[in-house]
Design a protein around this nucleic acid. Structure first.
Lengths: 333, 333
DNA sequence: TCCCAGTCTGTGAACGTTCCCAGAGACTCG
DNA sequence: CGAGTCTCTGGGAACGTTCACAGACTGGGA
């Protein structure tokens, strides 16, 4: 295999100059149809592939975006949704010929690396995933003034970092109303960690509906894990033995809650109704299957990418996008 | 903000030449300790960050690796394991200052893009995930002679593409033996799709143990989904109403099988014992919790990266790595 | 003393693009 | 018919590195 063909080779074959080939490559105006055709043909003939490094070197654009995976709680958060998010983002970006670089921000070294990478100009934009409150890396990124968006609000930075998210708060309201409609009177909740948007907003939605009936006694905090959900449910039962419903802020925690209820001899939904959140794969496989709130995950990912692209294209400011959730009724309520 | 500092600026501040700075950057020999210190200081002072594009342009190396996500069965495969794999890979690669670019190979356009990307020299290596049999893209990549590895064997290309994987076959044997030890006599199995390594090898392990008792009647095929598992279980029950155990090749399908059994009025494990595979998050949340086979996922990912790095470093040929699985006993058997 | 090997440094020439400018034609309008 | 505008083209310069080479300096052995 000889050397990879360059723009020079294409130009020679097409009988034009480098400049003209470059113009065709970049879709510039001012190229005659004859030249255009000749270049196209020469590209096909030589099997030419653009060298992005050379291009980036002069344009100062990289044609890539970095997705930063934070690990809020010591990798407890093994979210199946990542898969959907990543796929969707890669797809949408590929349409624009932008590639996706993954980075992990687990410890300080990682976070440093991310900042250095972006400061080095190696990415045209940043896509934040599962951020958590008070992350210094995020402030550093904001300072760099590189287009940055997040999937899910960044707590405390809602105004400065555009995001797309599911309407957690309204979703929680839907579920809470549903439990009331089912005739439940003493409704508790198990939240996520209170430094995550899902933790905060789902509790707010719950409180919106119940008003002052949402006493502190009826609120217990979990950590998104199944074991955490089980523990929280156990504590709730001790404190409020006569509760007749519980809204759990994630399906995985709800699965834990179901186990705790079973262990305590309560029947679901007869004695206690259980509502989840996410409509993840566990939801359908619990016993009984979970009533839950579905998030339009792919759509959220899509909108996040859209925001990022807009920013990269020079949009000064883009607003957050919040997408509606949907109640999925199964047998646990 | 002024222009980003280049190697020239560092050289000027350090009072040496470009060449010397470059040598320090690349850890070359033949740099005096004084020069070395001066350069280090100048780098810190100027906040210099290497421009990878410029480097790649001359070295013909990119310092990045592409991970290709195939979608074997129309994105049915929403594998929570992706998350672990991606994290692990990103981590290990970052240690070597190599970044991970994600690409999706869903349709022909995607596959073309991947090949073009690699042919364009934009990656030093390829990391294949969830491949499926007879993929032309894989042959194209092999032809390009770029270092390529896979997580999980590539069916039909086991000899040409190095891989790391869990010992599916032995795992299936462990489970089958376990079912026999539990006194089961009529043991059926629900497999994965027969064009995936998990589908094939887990069935082989099952057959290894049962020998000729593993009649065709006792084998039913699923598609890794819960609904698929439910359907397969229903068909099995019709055909072999007196079966007393079933080994299901994935936890998600096993959850479906449990639902089918419940619908048919069979008690688990009293009437029918159910074994899963993967030890995914659903396993612990089914009712009853699933006995299953745990794969050392993070370790598999780690080994895959190791193979890839070895290949990139010039190792001519690296053998496959197969890691042991472990039986996790819960209440379904 | 001289020579050679080893260590260290500076510099010109690449790497493959895009950008910019100058210039050649063609066409339009006064 | 001349000036101005628009379309199209070619080629020099720049982007920020690494690499190869040449040269300077050191020290040790003949």
């Amino acid at each position: 295999m000889a050397k990879r063909p360059t723009i020079h080779d294409v130009a020679a074959v097409a009988g034009v100059s480098r400049g003209t080939v470059s113009r065709v490559l970049n879709g510039d105006r001012y190229v005659s149809t004859a030249a255009h055709a000749a270049v196209r043909r020469a590209i096909a003939e030589t099997g030419y592939i653009l060298n992005r490094n050379a291009r980036s070197l002069v344009t100062q654009r990289t044609g890539s975006v970095v997705m930063v995976l934070s690990e809020p709680h010591e990798k407890l958060f093994e979210d199946p949704n990542y898969s959907v998010t990543i796929r969707t983002a890669v797809r949408r970006l590929a349409e624009r010929d932008i590639s996706l670089v993954m980075m992990v921000a687990g410890d300080d070294g990682d976070r440093d690396r991310v900042v250095r990478y972006v400061r080095g100009g190696h990415a045209d934009g940043v896509f934040l995933l599962s951020t958590h409150a008070g992350d210094r890396m995020i402030d550093a990124l904001v300072d760099l003034a590189v287009p940055t968006v997040a999937l899910g609000a960044v707590i405390g930075r809602e105004q400065v970092i555009p995001y797309a998210a599911a309407d957690d708060r309204e979703g929680a309201r839907q579920m809470t109303r549903h439990l009331i409609e089912r005739g439940r009177r003493k409704i508790a909740t198990i939240t996520g960690p209170m430094d995550t948007p899902g933790g905060i907003q789902r509790l707010e939605g719950f409180a919106d509906v119940l008003g002052r009936k949402a006493s502190k006694k009826l609120v217990e905090h979990g950590d998104w894990t199944q074991a955490g959900g089980e523990g929280a449910m156990t504590r709730l039962l001790q404190r409020v033995p006569d509760l007749d419903a519980v809204f759990v802020a994630s399906d995985l925690m709800a699965a834990g809650a179901l186990a705790a209820l079973r262990a305590a001899g309560r029947r679901v939904p007869d004695d206690v109704a259980v509502g989840g959140f996410d409509d993840s794969s566990v939801a359908a496989s619990t016993h009984p299957p979970l009533t839950t709130v579905r998030q339009p995950l792919a759509q959220v990912a899509e909108e996040t990418v859209r925001l990022l692209l807009a920013l990269i294209d020079g949009a000064g400011h883009v607003g957050p996008v919040v997408l509606p959730t949907r109640l999925i009724t199964r047998e646990s309520t």
